[in-house]
């Protein structure tokens, strides 16, 4: 079996300027900080980041934003990271951050659709609001829905609690968030995990993400204070 275990720097080696990356977590709880740190060291630029939120300065994708590596952010909430507003409103064109806000449930389903071979989803969320601008409204059984398109990325950063050497992964507490859907919706999937165990040590009943989705496993992740 292919060895998927590597260092964080090895795992991010193929990421290049302009790539898109899905990052799991909610307010950085469930975000693999060791992978974010490696990406900061690599200093690739003009990234498109897909994540629930902008983290906070110094945590989660907030580190990438602070380092000026993010060109476009697709997220549901950015209000707890004041740097996002500063970078959205900057007069320096090269530093400008484009921010696309998506309702949280819609974001989760768009990622799921991207990984599940669906051509999109129909949701009542956003009907009659500016979120509906430019989108097709489809009536089904008398109710209006927005057609929301699937979302995929070049890479996904997952944060596991326990991962076996095949990549089977469990997520503790509220770290699960977007991780299981993102695992299915990117070409190159990297798990930063707290504990690496032998194949067979995780009860199949408890595996949330199958190893078939995982390309690289990086140990050394730990529970972080927000």
């Amino acid at each position: 079996m292919k060895n998927k275990i590597m260092t964080a720097d090895e795992a991010v080696a193929t990421i290049k300027d302009g790539d898109s990356i899905m990052v799991g977590g909610f307010m950085a709880c469930g975000t693999p900080e060791i992978l974010i740190d490696a990406l900061v060291r690599k200093n690739v630029r003009h990234l498109t980041i897909i994540c629930n939120d902008a983290g906070v300065p110094g945590r989660g994708v907030g580190k990438l934003i602070s380092n000026g590596q993010v060109k476009k952010l697709i997220a549901s909430h950015v209000g707890l990271n004041p740097e996002v507003a500063q970078r959205m409103n900057t007069d320096v064109e090269a530093d400008k951050l484009e921010c696309i806000l998506v309702p949280q449930g819609t974001l989760a389903e768009r990622v799921r659709a991207g990984g599940a071979g669906l051509g999109g989803i129909l949701t009542p969320t956003g009907v009659g609001t500016i979120v509906a601008e430019g989108k097709q409204v489809i009536s089904v059984q008398g109710r209006d829905y927005l057609l929301e398109e699937p979302l995929r990325a070049d890479h996904a950063f997952l944060r596991g609690s326990v991962t076996d050497k095949f990549g089977n992964t469990t997520y503790n507490g509220t770290t699960r968030t977007f991780n299981p859907m993102m695992a299915t919706a990117a070409d190159n999937v990297i798990v930063g995990t707290c504990e690496i165990v032998e194949i067979g040590e995780i009860d199949p009943n408890h595996v949330v993400t199958s190893g078939i989705f995982v390309d690289a496993i990086v140990g050394g992740e730990k529970p972080w204070q927000i």
Partner: peptide, 15 residues
């Protein structure tokens, strides 16, 4: 002025 984002609010009030 203030663009915090909708988070889960749009889904919550619809659902």
């Amino acid at each position: 002025k203030m663009v915090p984002g909708m988070g889960g609010a749009m889904d919550l009030v619809v659902g």
